[in-house]
């Protein structure tokens, strides 16, 4: 087996997987299958929620313990999660109401917001976590797969 994956690798890959779930939702004008859009939107939201819960419950607490200086940045990441959750709710509402124009507009706004958030985590916070948590990091990362 290869080296256990780092936090940066595991969570970056999870970011991409979530991105793909959102971009796979397709609207086809009048022929849009809304029940399916609702299901796919829920699947995307569940994946995002799993990722956030991993960060907030599994990753950030030990990181804040070993590196108290990281508490500012993790707090900001939690705030971002809150902002993203607001849009996830809006997206689900647009799907439920079969509002195509709003769905597309919210989906794109959400996509940009998530990219902005992910860029900060991937470029700064995850590398910091890998350094600060050293060996423990890989064990933590492995726990993402066990979450549901």
């Amino acid at each position: 087996m290869s080296d256990p994956a780092t936090i940066t690798e595991t969570l970056t890959k999870d970011h991409r997987d979530c991105d793909r779930l959102l971009s796979a939702v397709s609207l086809q004008g009048r022929k849009t299958d809304w029940p399916r859009v609702v299901r796919e939107t829920e699947a995307f939201r569940a994946a995002m929620e799993r990722h956030f819960r991993f960060e907030e419950e599994v990753l950030f607490p030990p990181l804040e313990q070993v590196a108290p200086l990281a508490a500012g940045p993790t707090e900001m990441m939690r705030q971002h999660h809150g902002q993203i959750r607001v849009l996830l709710d809006d997206l689900a509402a647009a799907a439920a109401a079969a509002e195509a124009a709003d769905y597309v507009g919210i989906s794109e706004t959400l996509h940009f917001l998530i990219q902005q958030h992910n860029a900060k985590e991937e470029g700064i916070l995850y590398p910091l976590a890998d350094r600060a948590l050293a060996g423990q990091g890989a064990d933590l990362a492995a726990r993402l797969a066990e979450m549901d």
């Binding site: 705030q79 809150g82 902002q83 607001v86 809006d90 124009a101 709003d102 597309v104 507009g105 919210i106 794109e108 706004t109 940009f112 917001l113 902005q116």
Partner: peptide, 22 residues
Amino acid sequence: WFHLQSRQVALGRFDLRIPHMH
């Protein structure tokens, strides 16, 4: 949009909808 949402969060006004990018 981003600055609007930050404002919305700061004011706690989640009862209002802010216009999305489109």
